[in-house]
Design a protein around this nucleic acid. Structure first.
Length: 858
RNA sequence: GCCGGGAUGGCGGAACUGGCAGACGCAGCGGACUUAAAAUCCGCAGCCCUUAAAAGGGGCGUGGGGGUUCGAGUCCCCCUCUCGGCACCA
């Protein structure tokens, strides 16, 4: 093969060399890089170079890479390569988030075992990544579905249990009676099962494992302030998710007979100051006291059932905001402890049991939702607070719309007994104090954040290492018995019950406490457990006796840059932060946060819509690589727009980048002769250069400056690539001088070497090829990033834009660094400027140094 | 409903702290090379008016309306459309 190719080259050297053929170049270097597995390996420890840990979110092995992956990894790879060249010891790993539902769905659909399906997907996607030229240290690869990894999920679970951070409680799941199995939200379509479209999904209560993420609510919230390298958007989303709110709990005594749920209703309110306007109590349909209040009235029972169903349906549809508010009066009353008034007790579909206490005091005059509800059911609306400045309050009669919460300092309470005339803040203080003193309430802080339910009633996940003994009850598997291996020969296409529950070999176990027979937990873990700590495992992926080595983690952590999609802004990134804090408290890591800096890249769309099979607008990375090469595909994904914005994929754009790379390729192929054997030129002799070659030298330094600053600052790689394009265009403009031999040989050599270095993070294949063409042999990643000389980048002359009253009227060329007086003088002397001023008076001259002059005339 | 982005030529997008709007690329047009085409190389190019044409002028222009400023794509207020997130958060 290679013989034939050599002959062709020998026969037609010119043509052969000048055509940019990415397939030939990329296949050649792909083979060489494959032969050297240590090429992108990070040093275990390096005291001379600073460490840099760049991490891209690991993919789910769905079958093939999509353009969103390519974009994510092109960003990370460019950064990793730049950091290598800037002299860092770079850790750049990759792995697979390999457990999860799609493998089970595929198994059911195509009758392939989940493990086989997953592993073959991984093999394919890994080959795609390698073909795209991503510089990963594959010796650290992590695959979460392998026992070597999930063993440590189980180990962590035992630690959580030991620390009281894992516990069991009843919780609702979607249940399909036809499948006799639990469904994920994703498997519920319009309230029905995905496999049985006629079958209504039921809600069932099951004992499930939870992790006490809420123990860390305050710290997770406070930590956000320190994460300055995270997008403000993500920090805001997490703050809202954690949802700290200060308020008070207030007890309302139930009037009349009560039952097992107690004789009072505790409400949570952030606005205790409005309590004199509380004209009813609203309960969540699941509130325990509801059963006591409605007794066995069949009508009320069915009404409450309806309300509950409405709430569940709205939640599933993700449409809770739009729920039409319904409620039912229980016929009972509760006593407002502040004024002893009787407030009717209602049950309402918009009250959530899992926030606050599941009971609220309804203040229709000052809350929109309460107002809407009160209007609908004709409940009393009583104004109790107004801005002081409005003067006469409409103290009687109902407002046209809710008089929304006044929190200004000059607000004023009315209709509130002894608290009248107080401001909102004063009232909150005083009323809370009174409630605490009299024992019917107290100040409190609540969070929206809930504990993390990690039980999944499915097969393809990490088995939860717990046992149930008839005598001893719940018992953890002993550490020495880990891993609890997920059985492989399981027929998950059978319907009914848990696949693991059908395997006697799996289920039947021995109790570690009493030695008697025990039943094994058949639930598996949420896959978010896998992704909560995988990035620690990369630091020592082969470690057999521990999940991680503390000293090694200490060297690499925190992650210097984490890159991924904004869709993970909440769940994954909160669980990861929680896990880090948990590990810190276990004493096995020392950092508080997993990542110092986070970058969320924009979505890849096509023709204005998200790529999806049903729309038929999916672009395959393989097709792009086959047509234009990996370099062009990657570079286009960086060039089309800045990385944080949505990217509209245009194939013609890839072709354009391919054309540009061809131009760069041809320039070096034509002029490499000058570089080979020539010493690099180190500036400082600009005075001897012709105007053209000085211009090239200046542009070279300006380009290095722009690209370097993009890496250090905003990551607008689209402008980096544009800058390199401009530079190459400039080189083509000097071709006459170059081909005639008048261009300084050393400068020509220098220009080419630095051009190739600038291309290296974006188009690694082409850079490697051209580096070799230039007679260089050192691995580009070990070569220092080019430096620029600010003095050589500076312009000698500046063209000032001249405005008259803000309208552009002329341009004046002046030597750089002209003093302001001279600029003013020369501008006012300019012919066009004088004509524009004519006989008007010059009122002011504004000089913006190095840029613009605005002459204000009257 | 709430929260958070976004809107710039025919298209993707530049313009970093308010300072020449449209860099760079695509598509388009003209030219060179070629028997021809492709490829390549060079050039033109926001819209409108003025002009026989060109040069040159002039006006308009960053979703819409107001404002601040010598000067606004950029800052402030109101509105429209659009994308994303959501657990009605009491």
């Amino acid at each position: 093969m290679s013989e034939t190719k050599t002959n062709v080259t020998a026969n037609q050297p010119e043509q052969r060399e000048l055509r940019y053929d990415p397939q030939r170049i990329e296949e050649k270097w792909h083979a060489r890089w494959e032969a050297d597995p240590t090429l992108y390996a990070a040093e275990p420890h390096d005291s001379k170079r600073k460490k840099y840990y760049v991490l891209e979110m690991l993919p789910y092995p769905s079958g093939a890479l999509h353009m969103g992956h390519v974009r994510n990894y092109a960003i990370g790879d460019a950064l990793a390569r730049y950091m290598w060249m800037s002299g860092h010891n770079v850790l750049h790993p990759m792995g697979w988030d390999a457990f999860g539902l799609p493998a089970e769905n595929a198994a059911i659909k195509n009758n392939v075992p989940p493990r086989q399906w997953t592993l073959s997907n991984i093999a394919h996607m890994k080959a795609q990544m390698k073909r795209l030229g991503f510089a990963y240290d594959w010796s650290r690869e992590v695959t979460t579905c392998l026992p070597e990894y999930y063993k440590w999920n189980q180990w962590f679970f035992l630690k959580l249990y030991e620390k009281g951070l894992a516990y069991r409680k009843k919780s609702k799941v979607n249940w399909c009676p036809e499948c006799a199995t639990v469904l994920a939200n994703e498997q519920v379509v319009d309230g029905c099962c995905w496999r049985h479209e006629e079958t209504q999904v039921e809600q069932r209560e099951l004992e499930q494992w939870f992790v006490r993420t809420t123990n860390y609510s305050e710290e997770l919230l406070a930590g956000l302030d320190k994460l300055e390298g995270w997008p403000e958007k993500v920090r805001t989303m997490q703050r809202n998710w954690i949802g700290r709110s200060e308020g008070a709990l207030v007890d309302f005594k139930i009037d009349g007979p009560t039952g097992s749920a107690g004789d009072k209703i505790t409400v949570f309110t952030t606005r205790i100051d409005t309590i004199f306007g509380a004209t009813s109590i609203q309960l969540a349909p699941e509130h325990p006291v509801v059963a006591d209040l409605i007794g066995n009235d069949p009508h009320l029972h069915s009404k409450v059932e309806d309300l509950m169903r409405e709430q569940v349906r709205a939640r599933e549809a993700g449409d809770v905001g739009a729920i039409e508010k319904h409620g039912v009066f229980t016929g009972r009353y509760a006593i407002n402890p502040f004024n002893q008034e009787k407030a009717p007790i209602w049950v309402a579909n918009y009250i959530l049991m899992d926030y606050g206490t599941g009971a609220i005091m309804s203040v229709p005059a000052h809350d929109e939702r309460d107002y809407e509800f009160a209007k609908k059911y004709d409940l009393e609306i009583r104004i109790v607070i107004l801005p002081r400045r409005t003067g006469e309050p409409p103290a009687h009669g109902e407002p046209e719309q809710p008089v929304l919460p006044y929190t200004e300092k000059d607000s004023l309470l009315i209709n509130s007994g002894e608290f009248n005339e107080l401001s909102n803040q004063e009232a909150i203080e005083k009323m809370s104090a009174v409630a605490e003193k009299k024992g019917f309430g107290k100040r409190t802080v609540t969070y929206r954040l809930k504990d993390w339910g990690i039980s999944r009633q499915r097969y393809w996940g990490t088995p939860i290492p717990m046992l149930y003994c008839e005598k001893c009850g719940v018992a953890p598997v002993e550490e020495k018995d880990l891993p609890v291996v997920l059985p492989e020969n399981v027929d998950i296409t059978l319907q009914g019950g848990s696949p693991l529950g059908r395997l006697p070999d799996f289920v039947n176990a021995t109790c570690p406490k009493c030695g008697g027979s025990a039943r094994r937990e058949t639930d598996t873990m949420d896959t978010f457990v896998d992704s909560s700590w995988y990035f620690y495992r990369y630091t020592n992926a082969q470690l057999a006796d521990r999940p991680l080595d503390t000293a090694t983690v200490d060297y690499w952590f925190p992650i210097d840059q984490y890159i991924g999609g904004v869709e993970h802004a909440i769940l994954h990134l909160i669980y990861s932060r929680f896990w880090t804090k948990f590990m810190r408290d276990l004493g096995i890591v020392r950092n508080d946060e997993p990542a110092l800096r986070l970058f969320t890249q924009g979505m890849v769309i096509k023709d204005g819509a998200k790529m999806s099979k049903s729309k038929g607008n999916v672009v395959s990375p393989d097709d792009m690589v086959a047509q234009f090469g990996a370099d062009s595909t990657r570079m286009y994904s960086l060039f089309a727009t800045s990385p944080d914005r949505e990217l509209d994929w245009q194939e013609a754009g890839v072709e354009g980048v391919h054309r540009f790379l061809g131009r760069a390729y041809r320039f070096v192929m034509r002029n490499a002769g000058a570089a080979r054997g020539s010493q690099s030129r180190d500036g400082a002799r600009s005075a001897e250069l012709s105007p053209k070659s000085r211009q090239i030298e200046r542009k070279l330094h300006q380009t290095i400056k722009r690209v370097t600053e993009d890496f250090q600052g905003r990551w607008h790689f689209n402008t980096s690539v544009a800058a390199i394009m401009e530079f190459v265009n400039e080189l083509y403009g000097a071709e006459d001088e170059i081909s005639s031999g008048r261009f300084p040989r050393e400068l020509l050599a220098d220009v080419q070497r630095r051009l190739v270095l600038l291309l290296a993070p974006f188009s690694p294949y082409l850079a490697a090829e051209l580096w070799e063409v230039l007679g260089e042999h050192q691995n580009l990643l070990r070569h220092p990033w080019p430096a620029f000389d600010p003095a050589l980048a500076r312009e000698d002359e500046i063209t000032y834009a001249v405005q008259i009253n803000g309208k552009l009227r002329s341009h004046v060329v002046l030597p750089a660094e002209s003093p302001e007086d001279l600029v003013r003088e020369r501008v006012l002397a300019d012919e066009k400027v004088r004509a524009a001023i004519a006989d008007k008076q010059v009122a002011k001259v504004i000089v913006v140094a190095g840029k613009l002059v605005n002459v204000v005339v009257r």
